[in-house]
Design a protein around this nucleic acid. Structure first.
Length: 468
RNA sequence: GGCUCGUUCGUCUAUCGGUUAGGACACCUGGUUUUCAACCAGGUAAGAGGGGUUCGACUCCCCUACGAGCUGCCA
């Protein structure tokens, strides 16, 4: 009666921080599941004991959490499931879809070297034990290999790449269980995805070829094959695979640079995926329209300008309190001093006049500078020019009138206009020294907004100091 | 080397055989403005190359070039 529930997963290997490409893969899985009332699971592929670290796992979790990608249930450790993997390997043995191979790594290396010497740069290794008589088995360590079909073809029906046909002859009998009884990735992913009920495997297209081998394991165990969707990788601005030399590759680096998470999600989702001309959307909107069909086949390049633009939209759309909260998170991530209570108060009052002018948190802080400074205001050199004797005189005449004013824009406007008129100057000529006095700068939010936000007493105090 | 995938403005992309090839970012011009940002109006800019199929190809097929991935007792 009810449709089978959609179950997706993100399965990173904990060998480093959360890569921006991994973040996008996770995002696609999350969008797909969340948009369909399904489940989004998280599994850590830590079967490589040499390279896996707990630090990397926590870094990945931190990155996902910052991105706002919440997962269902507990984080699954692949390593913890190794006994189950071994069990399946032996079931394959029993079914005759796998076999014990006693070839040593030295023998395999020798085989490859020989092939190379013979002019074949790469050859598919065929184990001599594939059809060997058990009576001839030596008492030495062995691995369990998949007994892959030698002929015919394996077809991957991929939702992104289309129908991909791979000749079985090009695939070797991959190892599913190592000689120390630990599973290899090819076995572990399939067993885990099956046991976890994963219905849609959405991952990087570096796994497209692997899908053929994995599909053989599904076949060997007679398990239903999940829906495949192999998405293109992200490239750097020069079109090469994204790497360290392109700059930031870790999700957390983007947090430290001050990009808001909502903007990051929006930008990342549009990188390689489109829904018509839609550019800016909330997570809820993205979930509602995200589908596999909209994913492009070509790798996309990172464009910081567009990232910033997208983030700017989300800054402006954000709820003031939420933005302030995320700002404190940014400061911590960037290793900057936390805000004082007074600064928090002012920011929550003045967020409205700075958030639509900023694309990132560093920009937001810069625009909000007039709220964060304390007297005495030290004007920048350019601002100092607006505080000439004549202007200071004008400010001096302004102060007493502000003392009796009610503190609303409606009340302030006529006062400033009248001062400008009395001195026969344009409003701009009055705004410049006001800016210099209130913020010590030449570029600031509206002078009215600044006055309203810092309040009557502070405004008068700053004007008094500047007009001395 | 073999196998697999990809190629529309500088960038992200729309198009699902017939469009003046559309949108967004960036850039340029003008406008607005109280500075900056924003905003408004306009503009420059694209189907890798070559063959087919078709009345008609960005769209389907083949080749080439270029890019990427896989080819481990890594994931």
């Amino acid at each position: 009666m009810s449709l089978p529930q959609v179950v997706t997963r993100f399965a990173p290997s904990p060998t480093g921080f959360l890569h921006i490409g991994g973040g996008r893969t996770a995002l696609f899985n999350w969008l797909y599941a969340r948009g369909r009332g399904g489940k989004f699971l998280l599994r850590i592929e830590d079967t490589d004991r040499e390279r896996s670290t707990p630090e990397a796992t926590t870094a990945i979790l931190r990155g996902l959490t910052w991105l706002g990608l919440d997962w269902d249930g507990d984080v699954v450790s692949q390593w913890d499931r190794r006994d189950r993997h071994a069990e399946v390997a032996h079931q394959m043995l029993a079914r005759g879809t796998a076999y014990k191979c006693f070839s040593t790594q030295e023998e395999i290396a020798a085989f490859r070297a020989e092939a190379e010497a013979a002019g074949v740069s790469y050859a598919v290794f065929t184990s001599p034990w594939r059809d060997a008589d058990p009576a001839s088995f030596p008492d030495t360590p062995y691995v369990i290999r998949m007994k892959a079909p030698r002929s015919g073809e394996t077809v991957i029906e991929d939702q992104v790449q289309g129908r991909v046909v791979i000749q079985n002859a090009t695939l070797d009998d991959m190892i599913v269980l190592r000689s120390d009884n630990t599973p290899t990735y090819m076995l572990a992913v399939v067993v885990d995805d099956h046991d976890m009920g994963v219905t849609h495997v959405i991952r990087g297209d570096d796994h497209l070829n692997n899908a053929a081998r994995q599909q053989m394991v599904y076949a060997a165990m007679d398990w239903p094959v999940p829906v495949w969707a192999h998405i293109p990788l992200i490239h750097g601005p020069d079109g090469k695979k994204l790497s360290k030399r392109h700059g930031a590759t870790g999700v957390e680096e983007y947090q430290a640079m001050g990009y808001p998470a909502a903007g990051m999600r929006n930008y990342l989702s549009r990188l390689g995926w489109a829904h018509g001309d839609m550019e800016i959307f909330t997570s809820l909107e993205a979930q509602a329209v995200f589908d596999l069909k909209g994913i492009g086949r070509a790798p996309a390049r990172l464009d910081f300008k567009k990232l910033e633009n997208t983030c700017g939209h989300h800054m402006a759309m954000a709820d003031n309190a939420a933005l302030l909260h995320e700002l404190t998170g940014y400061l911590a991530a960037a290793g900057q001093p936390a805000l004082t209570g007074a600064q928090m108060d002012l920011l929550s009052r003045g967020m409205y006049c700075v958030k639509d002018r900023a694309k990132t948190f560093p920009e937001l802080i810069d625009k909000a500078q007039f709220m964060l400074i304390t007297r005495p205001v030290v004007p920048e050199e350019a601002a100092l020019k607006s505080l000439d004797p004549v202007s200071r005189g004008i400010l001096k005449t302004l102060t007493p009138r502000l003392q009796n004013a009610s503190w609303t824009k409606e009340a302030l406007e006529p006062i400033l206009n009248q001062i400008a008129a009395e001195n026969e100057i344009g409003f701009g000529k009055l705004a410049a020294p006001l800016r210099a006095a209130l913020a010590g700068r030449t570029a600031t939010p509206s002078v009215y907004d600044m006055m309203l936000v810092i309040g009557q007493d502070e405004t008068i105090a700053r004007l008094a100091e500047a007009s001395v």
